[in-house]
Computed example of a mutant assay.
Amino acid sequence: MQEFEDIKSLWHNHTVEVKISSGEMLQQVKKEVNSIRTKSLFNIIGMGLSFVAIACLWLFFDFNSWTTHAGITILITAIAVYTFILYRGHRLITETDFTANPHDFLTGLRVYQVSRYNLYNRLFWIYMIALCVGSALFFFEVLSYFSFWKQALVVVLSFGWLIFCSTIVRNIVIKKEKERIALLIEKFERISAQFKEQTHQP
């Protein structure tokens, strides 16, 4: 019994440090970085397609009310500005080669983290307000051609979707992206630290 206690004590007091090389660490995060870049690119493409789709309303429909034109203008302006912000954030994680310059990429990743935080908070609500105002002005003329129940259905579905995206979907995306970026930053901090250790070694 005493031998068992001695072995147990030795086990608890013994720590094994597992070190992962910077090369192996870069391989681990390569897929994660590429995934973030791809997702960011798809977001930009999606916003660009939305811009084109709404702008095409002017080409295929003849609107009579100024409110409709004002609504479309607000919508495409909001989408264009938001797309530009997404593109600027995308450049932060694509301009630097993370395999060659992990420290520089880490700096860009931290700036990207702050930009995403701003994007999902103050800027997001400005964007949502613009969408609501633009949609309301657009529907002012368009819905006049529909019956009451169709008007109600379009309004409920449209603004219900905006509310759903701005609450449940937004919270899920923020949580996942926050954890993902924080984990990447932690890994790149370890990579940078290992590079420094290797540089100072004789």
Rank of each mutant, 00 (worst) to 15 (best):
Met1His: 11
Lys8Glu: 01
Lys8Trp: 02
His12Cys: 08
His14Gln: 09
His14Lys: 13
Val18Cys: 07
Lys19Thr: 13
Ile20Cys: 07
Ser21Val: 00
Gly23Glu: 11
Gln28Arg: 13
Val29Gln: 13
Lys30Ile: 03
Glu32Asp: 15
Asn34Gln: 15
Asn34Glu: 15
Asn34His: 06
Lys39His: 10
Ser40Gln: 14
Ile44Trp: 03
Met47Ser: 11
Leu49His: 07
Leu49Arg: 07
Leu57Phe: 12
Phe61Ile: 04
Trp66Met: 11
Thr67Pro: 00
Thr68Asn: 05
His69Lys: 09
Ile72Pro: 05
Ile72Arg: 08
Ala80Met: 07
Tyr82Thr: 10
Thr83Glu: 02
Thr83Lys: 09
Ile85Asn: 04
Leu86Gln: 13
Tyr87Gly: 04
Gly89Gln: 15
Gly89Cys: 10
His90Tyr: 13
Thr94Lys: 07
Asp97Val: 01
Asp97Ile: 01
Ala100Trp: 02
His103Gln: 14
Asp104Cys: 02
Gly108Tyr: 06
Val111Leu: 01
Tyr112Phe: 15
Val114Ile: 05
Ser115Phe: 06
Ser115His: 07
Tyr117Lys: 04
Tyr120Ala: 02
Tyr120Ser: 07
Arg122Cys: 06
Trp125Pro: 00
Trp125Cys: 01
Met128Gly: 03
Ala136Ile: 15
Ala136Pro: 01
Glu141Trp: 10
Leu143Trp: 01
Phe146Asn: 09
Phe146Lys: 06
Ala152Asn: 03
Leu153Gln: 14
Leu157Gln: 09
Ser158Ala: 14
Phe159Asn: 10
Gly160Ala: 10
Trp161Arg: 06
Cys165Met: 15
Ser166Ala: 14
Val173Phe: 10
Ile174Lys: 08
Lys176Gln: 14
Lys178Asn: 08
Arg180Trp: 00
Ala182Cys: 03
Ala182His: 09
Ala182Gly: 00
Leu183Met: 06
Glu186Asn: 15
Ser192Val: 15
Glu197Met: 13
Gln198Pro: 01
Thr199Asn: 08
His200Met: 09
His200Leu: 14
Gln201Glu: 08
Gln201Met: 07
